Simulated assay, not measured.
Amino acid sequence: MLIYLPIVLFATLPLTAVADNVPKFDIAQECKSEGGSTVMQEHCAGDEAQARDQLEPLWVQSAAADRAVCIKETSMDGSPSYVELLTCLEMARDVKKTSK
Score class of each variant (00 low, 15 high):
40 M>Q: 14
96 K>A: 07
45 A>C: 05
15 L>A: 08
5 L>H: 01
99 S>I: 03
35 G>A: 08
15 L>S: 03
91 M>W: 11
56 E>S: 06
79 S>M: 07
69 V>K: 12
68 A>Q: 09
68 A>D: 12
18 V>K: 01
12 T>L: 15
43 H>I: 09
68 A>I: 12
2 L>M: 00
61 Q>A: 14
66 D>C: 13
69 V>Q: 14
98 T>M: 06
40 M>R: 09
45 A>L: 08
19 A>H: 05
23 P>Q: 02
73 E>W: 07
16 T>D: 10
60 V>Y: 15
70 C>L: 10
64 A>P: 11
1 M>G: 03
81 S>A: 06
78 G>Q: 10
15 L>M: 01
4 Y>A: 01
86 L>A: 04
61 Q>I: 08
22 V>C: 12
63 A>S: 10
34 E>P: 01
79 S>R: 02
59 W>L: 13
83 V>S: 10
92 A>F: 10
92 A>L: 01
2 L>C: 01
16 T>W: 12
99 S>H: 09
29 Q>N: 14
9 L>N: 04
29 Q>C: 05
48 E>C: 00
21 N>I: 11
8 V>W: 08
93 R>I: 04
95 V>T: 08
11 A>G: 14
100 K>P: 02
18 V>R: 06
19 A>I: 15
33 S>I: 01
5 L>W: 08
88 C>Y: 14
38 T>H: 09
83 V>I: 09
45 A>F: 09
2 L>K: 04
60 V>K: 15
90 E>Q: 02
59 W>T: 04
79 S>A: 04
72 K>D: 15
35 G>R: 01
47 D>G: 00
66 D>T: 00
78 G>P: 11
80 P>L: 07
64 A>T: 14
83 V>H: 05
56 E>H: 06
20 D>G: 04
68 A>M: 12
74 T>L: 10
41 Q>R: 12
43 H>V: 06
3 I>C: 05
19 A>N: 14
79 S>D: 13
45 A>K: 13
83 V>C: 05
46 G>Y: 03
96 K>S: 13
3 I>K: 00
22 V>S: 05
67 R>Q: 15
88 C>H: 08
44 C>Q: 01
85 L>W: 04
88 C>V: 06
83 V>A: 09
43 H>T: 13
10 F>S: 11
37 S>T: 13
24 K>P: 07
6 P>D: 05
78 G>A: 07
100 K>F: 14
